[in-house]
């Protein structure tokens, strides 16, 4: 039982990180019907932004909560700018072209970031600085909870709650839903759809950046290809939840994190990565629209 609870907590913390990345896939899909292959690489870039900012600003050598928060927000800002730039210069010019062109461009941007990353940062893994000292917060019997797990869960859930608020309760968020529903009819409302699409990329990229920093803290080995598999799993989580649905992405990601942790805990860590593909195949067979997916074009 104690072992199970331990896996449960680990799974939720992993799942909430997947959730932050899955949201970006699902929002961009909702608004452009594009699988943004570069999204996992934006997440990767965040860890390197964090790595270098922490060095330049000296936080890499003196762990502190303030330092960690500053790095978190700087990396989010940098990735927001990166996401904005990708949409503005790579995707927007192709928006009226067949969807396939956009998809291929997304793969191109992804390769550019991965290979550019290898040139700029080197292909060897780097170690993300210890911005906060790892500590055991409390222990109940054999269950051990570290401050990192609490930080990951609290930070992720706060951002998800903030995002839910933006999407469902602000004018801009409702405009995002309107644009996702129908571009032309949204523009007839006086909504500048270019701005809303930019905003969607900014938001999604900033959340992926938050995930990057949290991962950097908890699993400090970072390398320019780390976004590939992680991004894929987050994408599968989004499909599992019903791509286009933000609440779906969050639930899908939690399921993904939990099942991954359970597989590792009770079977073998060999199957850790295979699980995502197994889940993908199962969803596509059983319910291709995902848990929260609607068969119509109602998205976001």
């Amino acid at each position: 039982m104690e072992e199970f609870v331990q896996h449960l907590i680990n799974g939720i913390s992993l799942g909430s990180i997947y959730g932050l990345v899955a949201i970006g896939y699902t929002m961009v899909y909702g608004i452009l019907k594009l699988i943004n292959f570069a999204h996992g690489d934006v997440y990767m870039m965040s860890t390197f932004f964090g790595f270098y900012f922490a060095r330049w600003l000296g936080f890499a050598y003196t762990p502190s909560v303030i330092g960690a928060l500053i790095i978190l927000f700087l990396a989010m800002a940098a990735c927001a700018l990166l996401g904005f730039t990708i949409e503005r210069f790579a995707y927007r010019p192709l928006r009226k072209m067949p969807r396939l062109n956009l998809l291929i461009t997304a793969i191109g941007v992804s390769l550019l970031l991965e290979n550019g990353g290898q040139i700029l940062f080197g292909a060897d893994p780097k170690f993300f600085p210890e911005l906060i000292q790892r500590a055991e917060l409390f222990r109940i019997g054999d269950i051990s909870i570290s401050n990192f797990q609490v930080i990951i869960i609290v930070v992720s859930l706060s951002f998800m709650a903030l995002l839910q608020y933006i999407i469902f309760h602000t004018k801009t968020g409702k405009a995002m839903q309107a644009v996702s529903f129908h571009h032309e009819n949204a523009s007839l409302m006086g909504i500048d759809i270019d701005r809303i699409i930019s905003f969607t990329f900014v938001l999604g990229s900033a959340l992926a950046a938050a995930a990057g920093i949290l991962v950097g803290l908890a699993y400090p080995r970072i390398d320019p290809l780390m976004g590939v598999l992680f991004g894929l799993k987050a994408f599968v989580a989004a499909v599992l939840g019903g791509i286009g649905s933000v609440p779906g992405a969050i639930v899908g990601a939690l399921i993904m994190g939990l099942s991954e942790e359970m597989v590792v805990g009770y079977f073998s860590s060999t199957y850790r990565d295979a699980l995502a593909f197994f889940l993908l195949i199962v969803i596509l067979l059983v319910k291709p629209t995902g848990l929260f997916g609607k068969s119509t074009s109602e998205k976001v």
Partner: peptide, 9 residues
């Protein structure tokens, strides 16, 4: 034409 309401809002 066709009303173009946002059905999910």
């Amino acid at each position: 034409e066709g009303r173009g309401i946002f059905a999910n809002l």
